[in-house]
Design a protein around this nucleic acid. Structure first.
Lengths: 347, 347
DNA sequence: TTGTAGGCGTTATCAC
DNA sequence: GTGATAACGCCTACAA
């Protein structure tokens, strides 16, 4: 690999290396002005030598790399991920292209110690990039805090909070989407709605539960306690259905397929007897997504907005954290139907 | 963004910057040996100052970046691409992780001039990486030639040739897969097989056609001329079916859905009257892939092998080009059936 | 065992 | 207009 440097070009053109740099960067501002003659000599020397700039040296001297990092805390293209990330990446790619940034995907997130991924030893490979988009299900508070402390510009896809400070993120409007879903169910006659969740206290869960409760209350309907499920245990869900619930709002990552199987084994049909709606996306491939009613994460849009946010963040270094909330996408599958008529035996 | 450099650490520890570098790189070999005492002082100074290495400076001095480039000549995560790239990326990601390389995806491939993507002006951003995987449908001969001339290590996913030299690639074994497919069709009674292609002379097409012809000849069956199709024109295919063909081997990117529609509109059923098999993958989302019989590209495996090849390439700079041929994956969908019994009216 | 000095290839600031 | 010269932050002979 023959390396031609600016100095080689300079020798051929009979000028100094500085001049070559100036010609290449068209530095006309300030005190620098290149005569047309010199300019031509340099350009022809470039052509003759086949000079190509070394982007690493440019980065070191110029303080930017032209790359955005994408950090996922787990592999993105596995069968288990089931395409969860590709839509985010679509938005990131499109916006990255507009911002003229290439994307650095960090792969080596799993081989090492399970914690402390971004920083390992005394390295932080994110720093190779001008800024980064982070995504994933984790809550890597310590790393985010350190990144924030270091003043490194980044945006999380998904709402995240850290102890001492505020970070920028793009989040989905779970609350509005859940409220809307409840209203739609109520509109088609459902009166006993049941929230099936993991019991997690992630902010997304809190938003969803609150919207569920508030909307039901506003509609003057009874509000049952959320029903726990998951880990193969759907007994409580079954009880709720037998007690008269006609619509289940299921929070990922509860296994909606298994849950449905349990319901049908108990003698109820989905959606004729019981409607099932999914509150957001499923991470993984266990589910044929199009079949399920509920709402979806606007993943492409979130990726897109994250990059835009990052760009704005970098235009105003030292500025405050910024947040964007993106509406979810209502989705009509085949698991929601009008409520069964009261009095009819549902078995 | 406060930057702590090795020299800052050195000052705190009361040593030279070289010593800090040595401690960080555990350079015990050769003439360098650090006393336990100094080492501790340096380490505690690192902790105290919060030093984090600057990967760009490391790259410039160390001549490697820890990144592999992935260059696709088009956006990878669009709806049009329809997930075509993600499986390749899965293999690339897995192997990249093993090789401890992050992946740099080049986005800005479309905005600029339609030709000359890798090199634009006097830049080649691929050089930011230690080596690159290229993929895509194009035949960017000039760029590949220049890249090869520059001695930059890269592997193409898909067979590619250049005028003066040989490049490394990973390709799918279309020939074997096509031969196998023909044999399977013959085994279930088909005697009039028809090759439907674009007429392109890409090497993959040539391989497929030759395997088709050879295998039929070996079986003692008649070999009809390949039938052209595409661009909405399937008249020739219809004629072939009416002339007695019972199995169509369709070469992407022929629109297999449209083609089938034409056949069925002509009064034939797929697969009862006519079997349809796909010779490879469809780039795009026009097709529900699982429904189609034929064979598939081993995309994950190809991505994986490409990275492994690249690693080997880099271990032996100046070595010859290397090639890997990966078997295709036979796929049973619902478009192939035994031949209709002769004499029976197929309409 | 540690430090000095030169280099990696570029950009940017001044004198001339 | 052009060219020294000094960063940029790190690595690595070689010298001490």
């Amino acid at each position: 690999m023959v390396v031609v440097r600016q100095i080689d070009v300079a020798r051929v053109a009979g000028v100094s290396q500085t001049t070559v740099s100036m010609v290449l960067n068209e530095r006309t501002g300030g005190s620098a002005r290149i005569s047309e003659d010199t300019r031509e000599r340099v350009l022809s020397a470039i052509k003759k030598t086949g000079y190509v700039a070394n982007p690493i040296a440019q980065s070191l001297a110029g303080h930017r790399t032209g790359m955005f990092g994408v950090f996922a805390f787990e592999p993105m293209f596995t069968a288990e991920a089931g395409g969860f990330y590709t839509e985010f990446l679509g938005g990131i790619e499109a916006a990255g292209e507009a911002a003229r940034k290439d994307l650095l995907l960090f792969t080596s997130t799993v081989l090492d110690e399970p914690d402390n991924h971004i920083y390992r030893r005394n390295e932080n490979r994110l720093r190779l990039t001008d800024g980064a988009i982070l995504l994933g299900n984790g809550e890597p508070k310590m790393e985010l805090a350190r990144l924030h402390e270091d003043g490194f510009p980044f945006v999380y896809i998904g709402r995240r909070e850290i102890p001492n400070g505020e970070i920028s993120y793009v989040s989905a409007d779970y609350a509005a989407a859940t409220a809307d879903l409840v209203e739609r169910l109520v509109a088609v006659g459902h009166e006993r709605l049941c929230y099936v969740g993991t019991g997690a206290d992630a902010s997304a869960s809190i938003d969803r539960r609150r919207a569920f409760v508030d909307t039901l209350r506003d509609a003057g309907l009874p509000v049952d306690r959320p029903v726990p499920a998951g880990h193969g245990d759907y007994a409580a869900v079954r009880q709720a259905v037998e007690a008269g619930a006609t619509a289940l709002l299921v929070e990922p990552p509860v296994g909606i397929d298994e849950l449905t199987a349990v319901i049908e084994r108990a003698g109820y049909r989905v959606p004729a007897d019981v409607s099932v709606a999914l509150l957001g996306d499923v991470h993984g491939h266990s589910v044929r997504p199009d079949d399920w009613s509920g709402y979806r994460l606007p993943r492409w849009e979130m990726g897109m907005q994250a990059v835009k946010l990052l760009v704005r963040l970098m235009e105003d270094p030292g500025g405050p954290a910024r947040r964007v909330v993106v509406p979810c996408l209502p989705h009509d599958g085949c698991t929601v139907a009008p409520a069964p008529r009261p009095g009819r035996d549902r078995r």
